[in-house]
Design a protein around this nucleic acid. Structure first.
Lengths: 227, 227
DNA sequence: CATATTTGTCATACGATTGTAACACAAATT
DNA sequence: AATTTGTGTTACAATCGTATGACAAATATG
């Protein structure tokens, strides 16, 4: 779930390999294609990002990008164009087609890594907002279905457990006193003892496995989700 | 308190209204302006976010953004650019001006809502963190996480230690008598001896290393944090 | 209405925090 | 210099705060 798939499309095979190697050291899964035709034959929707050379054989990068942008299943995939040093026109065309970024050759590997990271971060934040989920590593909670997943497996939290986790996850690093948790999670319901929270925290911790350690007890203060 | 004000600036009045309506359903307070001139006449510092069309009459969105970025009172306000994909705008490099995000037209309302939410959350988290921090050189305390860091390393203070340090740090150079410290930190809890404070001060000093010297004893008066 | 699930309370055990006492030392006062 | 007063420091004990299992009450579900 934390793994991003990237497709590198460039007719220079050496360059493809350099990019592949350097992006893989960053933890991405990288495939390569050496022409637009080859790329379009792949199942593109598995990719989270496409690096696309502008100048390629029969079908140019721009042409390929516009094909992608016309496909319902693919149009959301961010595209970074690679092209020969700033011809302002190319840059314009690139953005017009809907490229998300643009890197001029020759480029530094560092620059590519940075831009890739920035784009992926931006798009995943937005995707999470659209899906209404909160996430920390492979722990995610879906605010619509009120479910908590760990490695995409439902942790089967009860209502109280879910609401406590939600509160903590919405404000990471902030310590919540028992009074605050009571006010937020139990709201104006009947009175319950402070100790009740401890018990619910214990149950929650047990259900979320390793992530249970992220719910930290701050002695005398309360509880807190630590990243 | 949870109300965010957003300014939408676009010369297409219909689009402004659509955005206004859809952002208001999300609970934001939305104003609109139909030109940069109109927008700049407003008291911009009340806004938490500005949505800015790039292509507008006399003053472009980029121009307006750079004006905002040059103002001390406004430069922190996040800006999301709205750009037309088919525009001939030759200032795309202006993304360097300091936009926080950009959205290409035509866009889905969902996408706009998501990006707005993402940006606002990000900026408020940062603001909260700044607001809730007390700092002296490389010693900092975070009032939300109740933690004290020295050179970004957690000093692992206990509750009493933290609360004493907080009191002193909130009023540097002010001498606090033991009675005052008791009242502030122990409040109406059980009685404890004056000497208890000495011991806690000693423990605190030990934990904050070199900064321990900043907690100065004023003989016959009490303690004080000296910068 | 019966059953399953969730939630709350109690009792106990354990460890961290905090308070106290005792002594050593420093500063002020005589 | 002697005395008084105030503070630093250590060690130890008391207290406090929390984790957790077991059970009961409440709530949801069929």
């Amino acid at each position: 779930m934390n793994e991003y798939r990237i497709l590198v499309t460039d007719d220079e095979e050496d360059l493809c390999e350099i990019l592949k190697f350097n992006l893989e050291t960053e933890g991405y899964i990288v495939d390569t294609a050496h022409s637009a035709e080859e790329a379009l034959a792949l199942d593109l929707q598995v990719y989270n990002l496409i690096l696309l050379d502008v100048m390629m054989g029969e079908i140019s990068g721009f042409k390929m990008a516009s094909i992608i942008r016309k496909s319902e299943h693919l149009k959301h995939i961010p595209i970074i164009f690679l092209t020969a040093r700033d011809s302002e026109n190319d840059k314009l065309t690139g953005f017009n087609i809907g490229g998300d970024d643009y890197i001029a050759k020759p480029f530094s590997i560092r620059e590519v890594q940075a831009r890739v990271k920035a784009i992926l971060r931006r798009t995943t934040i937005v995707e999470e907002e659209i899906k209404n989920e909160l996430r920390y590593e492979t722990l995610s909670i879906d605010l619509r279905s009120k479910k908590c997943y760990i490695d995409n497996v439902d942790a089967a939290l009860t209502k109280k457990e879910f609401e406590i986790l939600r509160l903590l996850l919405e404000h990471p690093r902030q310590v919540f006193s028992r009074e605050e948790i009571l006010a937020q999670v139990w709201s104006d319901e009947v009175y319950v003892l402070d100790r009740t929270i401890d018990v619910n925290i214990t149950r929650l911790r047990k259900k979320i496995g390793e992530y249970g350690k992220c719910i930290v007890t701050r002695l005398g203060y309360g509880y807190c989700f630590e990243q």
